[in-house]
């Protein structure tokens, strides 16, 4: 976590990044946006980041934009740490 991130909380930066992707995907047709958001995270976020994301999601997903919450079921839950 950046020392000077403009965000609060241990996963704030991650939430911020997920929301950034969501903002782009929101300008797409809805179903496509959900699909692409999930696949973007699956393709580019390594398991550790996705694990953190699921920690947020599992705790209710506070701070995440609705599109991220909607895409959650399509995001791959990483296997336990290798």
């Amino acid at each position: 976590m950046s020392l000077n991130a403009p965000h609060e909380g241990p996963h704030a930066k991650l939430i911020y990044m997920a929301n950034q992707i969501a903002k782009f995907m929101e300008s797409k047709p809805h179903a496509e946006g959900v699909e692409l958001l999930a696949s973007h995270i699956n393709d580019f976020w390594e398991p550790r980041m996705r694990r953190h994301l699921f920690e947020v999601l599992d705790a209710g997903g506070t701070g995440l934009r609705p599109l991220v919450l909607e895409a959650a079921s399509k995001i791959k839950r990483p296997a336990l740490a290798a």
């Binding site: 976590m1 950046s2 930066k13 580019f44 976020w45 390594e46 398991p47 550790r48 980041m49 990483p78």
Partner: peptide
């Protein structure tokens, strides 16, 4: 088969201790 860490992720993970 899983994507690996990008530079900023490496640094974040380093600070985090992994």
């Amino acid at each position: 088969p899983e994507p690996g860490l990008r530079i900023p992720n490496m640094l974040d993970a380093a600070v985090e201790g992994t």
